[in-house]
């Protein structure tokens, strides 16, 4: 599609959409959001770019093949699940690492977050695989 308005807005929107998708991903543990919906927003951003600039440009923007994203996401998800087994708990049991930072702040790293990142990547990878398949007809 060759539309100046679409191209210009896309360039503005894609940054906002990708940032928003990360925001949704991180927000997801306690509030509505999460890897799935974040991944969909990110995929929508790339889809928008694909519509505005074409499949080749979108491939360049992505740098990696969508299927590799799919693989990386699956790997992250399974590894997050396996972490539960390290402590002899069932598969997929959440594991937590909590760091106390000065100023009464704390950083929580968890296998749940890793799982969500995996979901995010799988969703982006899967949606884009399908989109590219349709685009290349």
């Amino acid at each position: 599609m060759n539309s100046l308005i679409l191209r210009t807005t896309t360039q503005l929107m894609i940054t906002i959409l990708l940032l928003f998708s990360v925001f949704l991903l991180l927000r997801g543990h306690d509030l509505p959001g999460g890897g799935f919906i974040g991944g969909l927003v990110a995929a929508a951003a790339v889809a928008l770019y694909l519509i505005a600039f074409g499949a080749d440009a979108a491939t360049l923007l992505l740098r990696v093949r969508p299927r590799a994203l799919l693989g990386a996401g699956l790997l992250a998800g399974v590894l997050a699940g396996l972490m539960g087994m390290v402590t002899a708990e069932p598969f997929l049991t959440g594991q937590w690492l909590i760091f106390d930072l000065p100023g009464n702040a704390e950083v929580k790293l968890s296998s749940v977050l890793l799982f969500d990142v995996g979901v995010y990547l799988v969703v982006v990878g899967a949606v884009l695989t399908m989109l590219f398949a349709l685009e290349q007809g």
Partner: peptide, 24 residues
């Protein structure tokens, strides 16, 4: 022993993930 019950799913899943990463 709990691990054993999920391993028949986890082993091919891990394999699939790695295979997708090294497609070439």
């Amino acid at each position: 022993m709990s691990a054993l019950v999920v391993l028949p799913v986890v082993v091919p899943l891990l394999a699939a993930a790695v295979l997708l990463l090294f497609r070439g």
